Amino acid sequence: MHFTMDDLAQLKVLPTVGPVAEAVFATELLRRGGGGAAFSKWRDDVSLRMRRMPPGPTTPRQTGPPAARTGTGGTWLFDLLDQQTAKGGEGITPDPVVRRMLELGVSPYWGKVRAYLQMDREFRCRMMAGGGIETMLSNLHTWMGWRPPSLTIAAGRGEEIHLDGRGLKIVPSMFIDRPRIFTSRRGEPRTPVLVYPTILDATVANALWDAPGTDARALAALVGRTRARVLEALSETCNTSELGRRLGISPAAASQHATVLRGAGLVTSRRRFNTMLHSLTPLGSALVTMGSPVPKPFTDQEPALSAAR
């Protein structure tokens, strides 16, 4: 993948591809028994749920939109990313196989997964701030290599992609098994999307796959039920009005809760024009994710990421 200076200037790091796209990746991961030891508990629990549910559609040998299998031609992924900016975008109805995985294998964990991916995104942004874009690109994944002005991805095939000023969106994923680049149809000026597997070890994974609701109750006991909901809602950055809508409370009440959590070091706020944007700090993300210390790869000052999956 070949960059120009304009492409580097337009590079963006997003927190997630969203639950529906993750369900596409998770369907293939479960079918192949992939993910290694870090996903063993997830595979066992999801398989058990599927056996207990009424028979669903048969999972074909290859599932999901064609782009999910080939890695390029990502119109379906672009549509999902676009819908995340619209109200109710996560409620899209996918095909039956993916819908089943969304219900049984992604949604029960989505609060924790989303917070963890947000933590990954913040880590990459800190890396760019401290060492520049080249440092971040050089340490995305062991299957990727940066030699200016080109990024090489081990994909098992030869392909040249020239960004030509379109820029690049980089997104971590919990259930994708290897880095993949998604591009639009020839002639469409849409920004390509690079999805890469987040850092995950067995210790962190076991906390992510704990029984849904267990950590939520512990978090509510620690900070209070409403403020626990604020932390969970801020797994995706939003302004004060949107935070109030997510929680069903007034903007004034949302601002008050955010102020208290900011004073505790769990939330950070920054002004953008005439609105205030709120997001989780690494400590806040860790509390929402698993209630344990921030995983070591996300706290390292040096960008040596030998633990990449």
Rank of each mutant, 00 (worst) to 15 (best):
L247E: 07
K12C: 15
L14A: 12
M136Y: 06
S150A: 10
P60N: 06
S235K: 09
A258V: 04
A264H: 08
L222Y: 05
T72I: 09
M50S: 15
L261Y: 07
D177N: 09
G187R: 02
S184Q: 15
K41A: 15
Q84N: 13
P66Q: 01
L117P: 10
S285L: 14
L48F: 08
H141V: 07
D7C: 07
L140D: 05
T240Y: 00
R245Q: 13
G156H: 06
L14I: 10
R246M: 10
V195Y: 03
I170S: 02
T59E: 08
A216W: 09
V204P: 05
K12M: 14
H278I: 10
I176P: 10
T75W: 13
R124H: 11
I161A: 01
L283T: 08
P15V: 00
E28C: 03
I161E: 02
M5C: 12
A228M: 00
S306D: 14
V24K: 03
R31D: 04
R31S: 07
V171D: 04
T152L: 11
D82E: 11
C125M: 09
W143P: 02
L151Y: 12
M50G: 12
T226P: 14
E236Q: 07
K41Y: 14
D215T: 10
P297Q: 02
G167Q: 07
Q301G: 11
L168C: 01
G111W: 06
I249V: 07
P15K: 00
V97D: 03
L277F: 00
R225N: 09
T226H: 14
I176E: 09
R180Q: 15
G71L: 03
L168N: 00
V13C: 07
M276Q: 09
D6L: 10
L80W: 01
L283H: 05
R69G: 13
A216C: 04
D45Y: 02
L8D: 08
Q256E: 00
L277Q: 04
R227V: 12
Q10L: 11
V106C: 12
G33K: 00
M53C: 11
D6A: 12
T72A: 08
D79A: 10
G64S: 00
A264L: 13
S47V: 09
A37Y: 04
G105P: 03
V20H: 11
N139Q: 15
T214I: 13
G224L: 01
L104C: 14
R309L: 15
L8G: 07
S269L: 08
P179Q: 06
G105W: 03
G91E: 14
L137I: 14
L231A: 05
V17H: 06
R246E: 12
T299P: 02
T152W: 09
F78M: 13
V294A: 13
H257W: 14
A129C: 07
P15Q: 01
L29D: 02
R126K: 12
T289G: 00
L14C: 08
P293H: 02
G158W: 03
P108Y: 01
